[in-house]
Nucleic acid binder design. Structure first.
Lengths: 204, 204
DNA sequence: ACCTGAACACCGTTCAAGT
DNA sequence: ACCTGAACACCGTTCAAGT
């Protein structure tokens, strides 16, 4: 039988990452972590300080895991859109970890590779200086919007999709639009529409 | 001296709302709530069931509080932009409560009044049907992006604004843009740029 | 240097008991 | 119908004690 591997900061973080990915952040308690590692709860404190430091260390690990992005397409427009979609997919695949990064104000870490790729694409499209920066940050903001509302929301325990009444009397807009506005938002469609509008608007 | 008012669901929710607004969601424990009300912890359970139901009830209250929006401006473009900014201000003023609504998947409740106002403005601009719905949802998505990244983020305990390296070698974009991209994002500026780009892109 | 066990001050929740 | 107090199973964290 194998000799028991000694406890280390690496092993603690690996186990913590495993619990978060498997059962969510709520399942990550110091006691559960200790049980997983077959060790006394207090042993963990020697390696990672306390729970806040443990979470912070986990967040710093996320960048490399989640930031793995693919950029495709011939035109700059296509490359911006494909990068945004790739980032969104990656965020979706690592929901709990991204939520953790969000809570620690470290979303920039997750978005960095995509930011670089999008800046390059906009540069290819002829944007320079402040206009390039604004365009890049705007697209990232759009992806953040979608990932933080839709994907994070759909992972939350409670799910409420019933619509909210928008007008008391007859809607002051056309009937078809009014009907659709009262149905649940098709977030995927909205994301596509928003992304296209932003890219169009940013490239004049 | 006044006779002690009997405990009621209303009084429990009022006290809970007070704690959340004063000290944040983390400060809202059943025991703290009981202490605030001068009552045994278990008395609360008779009126609100449990903590999950209490939070859900709080979220349903938020709509009316946060959704109070002002729309100004002559042109439809101005009215869309002013509504978005007014919503953003309101979200900023009720950070903890909006965070609560977010966790319960009930952001739609908070956004409803602004959604109606924006739909009217876009309708005035000539949009109809699916295009009107897409435009309305897209603008709401933008406000959600900004409020959930910037305002909610800036309220989180940990604050990290140091930049993340985007390229290992020389940046493949112009020097000014590269320098700016490595500085902390001016989220207010990005919000304005994004909002303008979206409105432009959506109105052809 | 690394790990354990007891202890402390917190949680949310249940339940029998009171009025 | 409404409220209390004791109790249970959880938390994160500290600290003296072991090797």
């Amino acid at each position: 039988m194998p000799v028991a591997e000694p406890l280390s900061r690496e092993r603690v973080l690996d186990a913590a990452m495993g619990i978060v990915e498997a059962d969510g952040i709520a399942a990550l308690s110091m006691r559960a972590l200790a049980a997983q590692l077959g060790v006394a709860v207090t042993a963990i404190y020697w390696h990672v300080g306390n729970k806040a430091e443990l979470l912070a260390a986990l967040v710093e690990r996320i960048g490399t895991d989640v930031g793995d992005i693919r950029t495709t397409g011939r035109t700059p427009e296509q490359r911006v859109a494909s990068t945004a979609r790739s980032l969104l997919q990656s965020i979706d695949d690592h929901g709990a970890l991204v939520g953790l990064a969000h809570q620690h104000g470290r979303l920039a870490l997750v978005f960095a590779p995509a930011r670089a790729a999008i800046a390059e694409a906009f540069s290819d499209a002829g944007l320079r200086g402040a206009a390039l920066v604004d365009a890049t940050n705007a697209v990232i903001q759009v992806v953040a919007a979608y990932s933080l509302t839709e994907s994070v929301m759909s992972r939350s325990p409670v799910q409420r999709t019933d619509a909210v009444r928008l007008w008391d009397g007859p809607p002051p807009i056309d009937a078809l639009a009014a009907k659709r506005l009262h149905q649940p938002v098709d977030t995927e469609r909205t994301f596509q529409a928003l992304l296209q509008a932003v890219i169009r608007g940013l490239l004049r």
